[in-house]
Nucleic acid binder design. Structure first.
Length: 562
RNA sequence: UGGGGGAUCGUCUAGUGGUAGGACACGUGACUCUGGAUCACGGCACCGGGGUUCGAAUCCCUGUCCCCCAGCCA
């Protein structure tokens, strides 16, 4: 690669430029290393965008490598889900799909090498004793009595560990570094533990498995990774990785750590997300309220929006809590350009046009997307009985009310001006029907006399509308930082009880018939909605992806406070 | 308590000795057949204290606060 001066936009690119300039590396290769023990979330999306994005920017490649060193927690189904999510985001790892388990044999040989060099030993302390011997912060550790076994004995024991002669916990292989180190990771870290568990790829071939710390650096090295980008949490593991690489004398990647993403009103940790799933607080990993990629996909977030978001939040080393409003902004921005407009009434209120002919049906023309005329137009049926939104009528409206009220004239989008002349109530005083007149001169939404109306409402023709269920979502948690809890409580106590509202008697325009799961629309004046896989031919199910920005709700709130 | 890292508008982030900028959020206005979209305008920040310098977010000293690490998890 010749051009080494990509404009730095963050500290990572700055370092890479320097490495290229000084000749430490003459190419760029990164990797994204998920553990197949759960689903990817928006925090992973940040890492994916950085890993794949940087490689692409520098004309290099990014490997996908599954960190599958713990068979007790990992499953093949997660491998599939992770691959699907990365592809959905729009990234491609070509044929470079690797597994830490591909390197088990090599790792084993390197372990033998360290034993022979007197740099690793088999320890037979119990897990509790190892913990005790490790010491604490400011308290130096003690050396294990097994630390000075002979090379021959270590070799023999380690080989027998592999051969399956011991029970779990009986022995481990440890690196011989420094029990006094201020860095806990250097206090003779465990390299191998015995696990009599089948592995999703290697089956029953192994009963000893490498620890992540022993595997990761060497895997990077084998793959010729130049820049190993990871979480800040691994900052003080770096000296250990360096130590292993130096002892082995193999290719030495550079590790650079950056701060993980935190998003307001949500949690981003596989452990907590698993808790939500297993506790039944959500319907699954792909619940549309989940910050998982599967959840966001089902919710209707376009992958482009997630990538735009990741670009905008930047990369740095400081702790952060990104406002979820930024993510929503990116989603709206993308959907505004792309989503076809349709009309759907969430909470229907019957409207009868008293001066409209009983059996007449007209087709009015509606533009599919004012942002993109290329998306064309469609016909929408109009007739004497319609539905409008309940909240678009007020019997006694406040100031600045642009919608329907007794005597008020509004425009029905794409159709006619109507004026409310009567209000029908049931025995409990609930408004059940509006009687309105329409002005035949205003077809298409304009009037020959040029008079103006304040508001424009969406509507559907009662006889033609399709039944639909709409699921409205709000933040899963009621606090920006769900981890901020009262004494003795945990984040579950911060769950938002109103995060899901199901509306099951919605009416949508007939053009939506047969809409495919996953397709996204803007319901005029309401927000963006995505067809859920739960839809049936009889009933469409929509997820509200995100609302439109709503100026009126602010005005109304302001008026309430007066 | 030992080790590692971090501190710039409400939030995220630029800045690398020379006018502290952008985005989101917020507020005001214009426009509008979506109270959408769009556009314009506005307020808002260098953790504290010393020093070096003509000039410091940036360099030096000093203090404070926050995060991570004591798995045979990753």
């Amino acid at each position: 690669m010749s051009e080494t001066n990509v404009a730095p936009t963050d500290f990572i690119r700055e370092i890479i430029n320097e490495d290229l300039r000084t000749g430490r590396f003459n190419y760029v290769r990164t990797r994204f290393p998920p553990e197949p023990n759960g689903y990817l979330h928006i925090g992973h999306a940040k890492a994916i965008c950085i890993d794949f994005g940087i490689a692409e920017e520098y004309g290099g490649v990014c490997n996908l490598r599954f960190d599958d060193t713990n068979p007790a927690k990992e499953e093949a189904k997660y491998v599939q889900a992770i691959k699907e999510d990365i592809r959905w985001l729009g990234f491609d790892w070509g044929d470079r799909e690797y597994y830490a388990s591909d390197y088990f044999e090599q790792l084993y040989e390197w372990a033998i090498q360290l034993i022979k060099d007197g740099k690793a030993y088999v320890d037979s302390l119990s897990p509790e004793e190892i913990k005790e011997y490790r010491g604490g912060f400011g308290v130096p550790g003690k050396e294990s009595p097994y630390r000075n076994r002979s090379v021959e004995e270590n070799l023999d024991l380690f080989q027998r560990m592999r051969a399956g002669e011991f029970r779990e916990g009986e022995h481990v292989l440890r690196a011989k570094i420094d029990m006094q180190s201020g860095n806990m990771n250097l206090r003779d870290p465990v390299m191998y533990r015995i696990l009599h568990a089948p592995h999703h790829r290697t089956g029953n071939r192994w009963c000893i498995y490498p620890m992540y710390d022993w595997a990761h650096g060497q895997c990077d090295s084998i793959e010729g990774i130049t820049h190993s980008l990871c979480d800040l949490a691994y900052e003080d593991h770096r000296p250990l990785y360096d130590w292993f690489l130096d002892q082995l004398g193999i290719f030495h990647p550079r590790q650079i750590e950056f701060a993980r993403l935190n998003l307001s009103y949500t949690v981003l940790s596989k452990r907590y997300l698993l808790r939500l799933v297993e506790g039944g607080y959500v319907s699954g990993w792909d619940d549309p309220r989940m910050p998982t990629l599967a959840g966001m996909r089902r919710r209707g977030y376009p992958p482009e929006a997630i990538r735009a978001f990741c670009d905008r939040i930047g990369v740095a080393k400081s702790e952060n809590l990104v406002d979820i409003a930024l993510l929503e902004h990116c989603v709206r921005e993308e959907l505004n350009k792309r989503a076809p407009r349709v009309m759907g009434v969430l909470r229907p209120l019957r409207v009868v046009l008293v001066n409209y002919p009983e059996d007449q049906v007209e087709e009015v023309e509606a533009i599919n997307n004012p942002e993109d005329p290329g998306m064309g137009v469609r016909k929408v049926p109009f007739s004497r009985v319609l539905y409008v939104e309940q909240e678009d009528f007020m019997e006694d409206p406040p100031r600045k009310w642009f919608r329907l009220a007794p005597g008020r004239e509004v425009r029905l989008k794409h159709a006619y001006y109507i004026t409310c002349v009567d209000v029908v109530k049931d025995e409990r005083g609930q408004v059940v029907e509006l009687r309105c007149t329409y002005d035949p001169e205003t077809r298409g939404g304009g009037s020959p006399d040029g008079r103006r109306v304040l508001g424009t409402l969406h509507w559907v023709s009662a006889a033609h509308a399709l039944d639909a269920e709409v699921r409205l979502y709000d933040y899963l948690f009621s606090k920006p930082d769900p981890m901020e809890v009262e004494e003795g409580k945990d984040f579950i106590s911060n769950l938002n009880p109103n995060s899901l509202e199901v509306l099951d008697s919605c009416k949508v325009e007939p053009s939506l018939r047969g809409a495919a799961p996953g397709s996204r629309f803007q319901f005029l004046r309401q927000g963006y909605f995505c067809v859920d896989p739960d839809s049936t031919p009889q009933k469409l199910v929509f997820n509200r992806t995100v609302t439109l920005k709503d100026t009126w709700s602010k005005i109304a709130k302001g008026q309430q406070e007066e």
